[in-house]
Design a protein around this nucleic acid. Structure first.
Lengths: 253, 253
DNA sequence: ACCTGAACACCGTTCAAGT
DNA sequence: ACCTGAACACCGTTCAAGT
């Protein structure tokens, strides 16, 4: 049982019926809504809101991304945004897919492995490019037009490698899982305190306080765990994944 | 330049000097702090706070996890919690590592691959077990005692497989990236609207609205993308990863 | 159809005052 | 050393009233 707010024009009613932001139905509803708009000169638009949100994100960081801050940057009241987005979660879902739109999708002509390498690197790049709210990552798998375009490109590439369609889909999901996880982990691995202290500083001292048996291997390799360059780690993760896919290909002769 | 709040007992001063929650230095500071406590009968403790937070999380979900809600469940004022945790972020970091403590770490005796399979499945299980705040995932890689124990177990297993120490460390990070990403994506894949609509409902209609060339492969395999069972997807991701690791092992004869 | 000031019901966090 | 009521500075969101 839903109580639906009905505005005089019924727009808000539509926007708040309650599909989960990022879900397929929600994206459908969204495109309907955008089509029904009658933009004013110098007025707001979803596009301008996303742009302002990305500005806030890049300049002042994740914590500063509030509806109020976005409104201020646009020179309007925060209440005005709610004519274009039904909630902060919607804004975040929109940002998530918008960012995926920066991915360059093109075949390399050098085979499926090179194609997938580019797709993975591109996805990682756009995620790391700005401090995305985690919730955007949560919806990143989602059903936005840019994400679906990306998924389609990956499925196509795995298809051309010789996988069955079903396996190409599964493999694409695995690829997305890995890149999403890698970006998240990298972000925290390279994090530092406000005071500038790297997250791993004092690692040896920390190990000394733990039961020796619990961290025996780490004692011998702690510096590797700490100082492994993030790009090298990603390259290695990607290589494992691609080698795994290769080993599952039907014998190619 | 820091302005440090100094309480009469100096405790709060210590807790707020500003290491990033989840960082190595922060965990060191934490264990010092806990050691200096003089608990009262029936009083609060970090442990009780974490327990209450997990209760809130499991019963009322992620959005309900507020400092105030945790305090209410403990029958105290929210201000009281700040004697044991310096911020909500600290609480989340503590939860993140606490959850990793549920992982059963034991050798299977059936080789490195079986050992790693267990570790991956266990990590996935504890992450999915409750709706963890994303920020906990962000810190999950971190330097908590339980996480380090887990990392150590994985490095040890890869070591026994024949990888060099450095490669074992890199491979462990890749493993964590994959499992963290897989859990995140699964959570959103199986999400539904408050009204109970699955996130993927209406997928075909959505594809119809996109440029046909952008989603050609998905049109043919959309149902697989939608209905792939989450457990099967994870098993497949894990198999790719393990096959990849295997293919990178030094020839074993 | 769009925009807005003012308000509502929350947050996390602080601090003086208590035991 | 620990706990707490009350307050502060925010949030996201709503709504009546304006154009």
């Amino acid at each position: 049982m839903h109580t639906v707010q009905v505005d005089s024009d019924g727009l808000v009613a539509c926007a708040s019926v309650g599909y989960e932001p990022g879900s397929a139905r929600w994206w459908i509803q969204r495109s309907d809504l955008e089509r029904r708009r009658r933009p004013r000169l110098g007025g707001l638009s979803t596009e301008r809101i996303i742009g302002a949100a990305l500005d806030v994100l890049r300049e002042d960081g994740l914590d500063a991304l509030t509806v109020r801050a976005v409104a201020e940057r646009l020179g309007t009241s925060n209440a005005s945004l709610y004519r274009h987005i039904a909630s902060r979660d919607e804004l975040i879902a929109l940002i998530g897919d918008h960012v995926m739109g920066d991915i360059r999708i093109e075949r390399t002509g050098r085979g499926w492995r090179a194609d997938i390498e580019v797709l993975m690197s591109e996805m990682r790049r756009v995620i790391l490019d700005q401090p995305l709210p985690d919730a955007a990552g949560r919806n990143m798998h989602g059903y936005g037009p840019n994400m679906l375009r990306f998924v389609n490109a990956a499925v196509t590439a795995f298809d051309s490698a010789g996988l069955t369609r079903a396996e190409a889909v599964y493999t694409t999901i695995a690829m997305i899982e890995l890149v999403a996880g890698a970006a998240t982990i990298q972000r925290s691995r390279s994090g530092r305190s406000p005071s500038g202290v790297p997250a791993g500083a004092g690692f040896d001292e920390l190990l000394d306080r733990l039961p020796p048996d619990d961290v025996a291997a780490l004692r011998e390799t702690g510096d590797v765990y700490l100082s492994a360059p993030v790009d090298a780690v990603f390259a290695h993760s990607m290589a494992i994944f691609l080698d795994g896919v290769t080993s599952r290909l039907p014998a190619s002769h």
